[in-house]
């Protein structure tokens, strides 16, 4: 029974994190983006600097009518938000936050493959939404989503493979156990490739062609309203949390830090994740959207060669030091 209790408790914690962290990131995005544009951002909801803005948004979304277009494929249309959201919940289970067995929802043996595979599944939600909406803009958004995923899955995998080579394991806690500080400069190219490809996979600006509002309204989510739309948005922000957490674990040493190694490891993980989330927001504010062909070009002609070069470098260094 203790086993069951343990599993339940872990899942509960992961679930709470899954619900809370995206909101924190979203609120941070509200405020950081506003200040980067010389604005104040939300100031009223909740009283103090609009801290409850996203809660208010959630209430608003919950009150809205759930509309399914007449020509839509009803069942798939309704299923799509869940398919988009749940994978990120699953990924969160496998991300270690601190040293040891106790600080991870579930230690997965083939952790890297698990997280990348499940994250790839999340894109199916967008595809389903895009197709089932019976809307040409949605379909175009779905197409762009698919093209983007196909282009950026490869560099992401290659960059992750580089870390796995360096650590000699594909388990996320195992990678963290093997981490040394000099991996940071060693794997920096891979880290950048991974992060950029992850941004593209999340369809975050400047890689948000699938939801480019000036071209195709809101891409695959055009026809969605109410709670299902909110779920898609939640999936996006959960994706940010997952991507930043993964980059932290794979490339930035997770719970390793200059001091406070025992007991305070989770603080380091959260801190690094937060900094990365800030960078995600920063990039969104700073850069305009890429064009669809520029996006493909960036992946195939820059990221993939860089990732391959990183793998080669990793292999050479690995052979030299062993």
């Amino acid at each position: 029974m203790n086993d069951v209790l343990d599993v339940t408790l872990r899942l509960l914690i992961v679930f709470v994190v899954f619900l809370a962290f995206p909101l924190v990131v979203g609120q941070t995005e509200h405020k950081v983006m506003a200040h980067m544009q010389g604005r104040l951002g939300p100031m009223y909801a909740g009283g103090f600097h609009g801290w409850a803005q996203l809660v208010a948004d959630g209430v608003k979304f919950a009150q809205k009518e759930d509309v399914v277009p007449a020509g839509a494929d009803r069942r798939i249309f309704q299923l799509a938000p869940a398919v988009a959201l749940l994978p990120y919940l699953l990924v969160l289970v496998a991300i270690p936050i601190g040293p040891g067995e106790g600080a991870v929802g579930q230690a997965v043996d083939a952790g890297i493959f698990f997280v990348l595979a499940v994250m790839g599944v999340g894109v199916l939600g967008s595809l389903m939404a895009g197709w089932a909406s019976a809307n040409k803009f949605s379909l175009l958004g779905g197409l762009r989503t698919a093209a983007q995923l196909l282009a950026y899955e490869l560099p992401m995998l290659l960059a992750a493979a580089s870390v796995a080579m360096a650590a000699g394991t594909v388990s996320l806690p195992g990678i963290l156990d093997a981490f040394e500080w000099w991996w940071l400069p060693w794997q920096i190219v891979g880290a950048i490739v991974f992060f950029v490809a992850g941004l593209a996979e999340l369809q975050r600006p400047p890689f948000d062609m699938p939801v480019a509002d000036s071209e195709i309204i809101f891409g695959a989510y055009t026809e969605y309203t109410g709670l299902r739309f909110a779920l898609f948005l939640l999936a996006e922000y959960a994706g940010i949390v997952v991507l930043c957490g993964l980059t932290t674990v794979l490339f930035l040493g997770g719970w390793h830090g200059p001091w406070g190694a025992d007991g305070l490891g989770w603080v380091w993980t959260l801190l690094k994740t937060a900094v990365l989330a800030f960078i995600v927001i920063w990039l969104r504010v700073t850069y305009p959207r890429l064009r669809e062909d520029q996006l493909q070009k960036l992946s195939w002609t820059l990221l993939v060669p860089l990732a391959l070069a990183q793998i080669a470098l990793t292999g050479i260094v690995k052979v030299v030091i062993s």
């Binding site: 950081v32 506003a34 200040h35 980067m36 544009q37 010389g38 604005r39 104040l40 100031m43 920063w282 990039l283 504010v285 700073t286 850069y287």
Partner: peptide, 20 residues
């Protein structure tokens, strides 16, 4: 690209122009 990032970061530290 770096210049763009610097611009947004600098704006963030400045006072906002929003009128309450």
């Amino acid at each position: 690209l770096a210049k763009g990032l610097a611009v947004t970061l600098r704006t963030m530290t400045k006072k906002t122009v929003t009128e309450q």
